[in-house]
């Protein structure tokens, strides 16, 4: 088996007295595409956000490339900037793409892409621009380098957002319903982009309702419901012979559309 990129051990997370994640265990190997499906409001986004510690789990381990990052540092270490340094390492090595793009509207496409390189990775401006330009060209936006986000279509915005993550050369990419806010005719292009990425060997965790994409690209489907992994397995098996009644119920509901 390929190297373990990410291992989540017994992750729990509550908001107030509402427990959103109730002990999640998940391992992702190099070049795997793990597709997370499940009904709305069941903790899919929260789980993704725990991976790069945008959300801090209440308990459990977030092991990335063999090291647990979900540790509270002592205040002495925090004063020395240890926690910050670890967090920066984790986040610069994990890319994340959001449903609503979250592009920086005051920066051009190119500047959106160079920001992380220059600020978090301390790469000199000239090199950062060169890398950002190459990345934007690869997602088909070579002619939009100096465009501001609000002059771009939804599909183009999401490409910029993908380029912004990829330019950091992450070891793992997180996609959170990245096609949900797009017009139907633009969805295919973004899914194709993600498929190309998977074929190039990128390790990915993808939250999506696009079952066609899951079947074609996914290595594994994880069904998340009520804060727990109800069922997990190869895509064909989950999509055609789900074992759990709740999985069956969910799939029949979304496949009807």
């Amino acid at each position: 088996m390929a190297e373990e990129i990410l291992k989540l051990v017994n992750i729990t997370k509550s908001f107030g007295d509402h427990q959103v994640l109730k002990g999640i265990n998940l391992t992702v190997h190099r070049q795997e595409v793990v597709v997370i499906i499940g009904p709305s409001g069941q903790g899919k986004s929260t789980l993704l956000r725990c991976v790069n510690l945008l959300e801090w789990p209440d308990s459990g381990e977030v092991i990335f490339l063999g090291k647990n990052y979900a540790v509270k540092h002592s205040w002495q270490d925090r004063l020395r900037g240890r926690g910050q340094e670890d967090l920066r390492y984790l986040r610069t090595h994990i890319g994340m793409v959001f449903q609503h793009f979250n592009l920086f509207p005051h920066l051009t496409a190119l500047q959106n892409c160079t920001l992380g390189l220059e600020q978090a990775l301390k790469i000199p401006k000239a090199e950062a621009e060169q890398r950002a330009k190459a990345q934007l060209e690869r997602v088909g936006l070579g002619d939009k380098l100096h465009a501001y986000p609000d002059t771009l279509s939804g599909g183009q915005k999401q490409r910029v957002a993908i380029a912004r993550s990829l330019v950091m050369e992450p070891k793992l990419m997180l996609f959170d319903e990245v096609t949900s806010a797009l017009d139907p005719e633009l969805i295919g292009g973004i899914l194709a982009e993600m498929k190309r990425l998977a074929e190039e060997g990128m390790t990915m965790i993808v939250v999506t309702h696009e079952m066609g994409f899951a079947r074609e690209v996914g290595s594994r489907i994880v069904f998340l419901c009520e804060g727990q992994i109800i069922e997990e397995g190869p895509c064909d098996q989950i999509l055609t012979h789900p074992q759990e009644p709740r999985t069956r119920q969910f799939l029949s509901a979304i496949l009807k559309h």
């Binding site: 994340m96 979250n102 992380g116 990775l121």
Partner: peptide, 8 residues
């Protein structure tokens, strides 16, 4: 979120 996810 986006800025933090980039490691800023």
């Amino acid at each position: 979120e986006a800025a933090r996810a980039l490691g800023l």
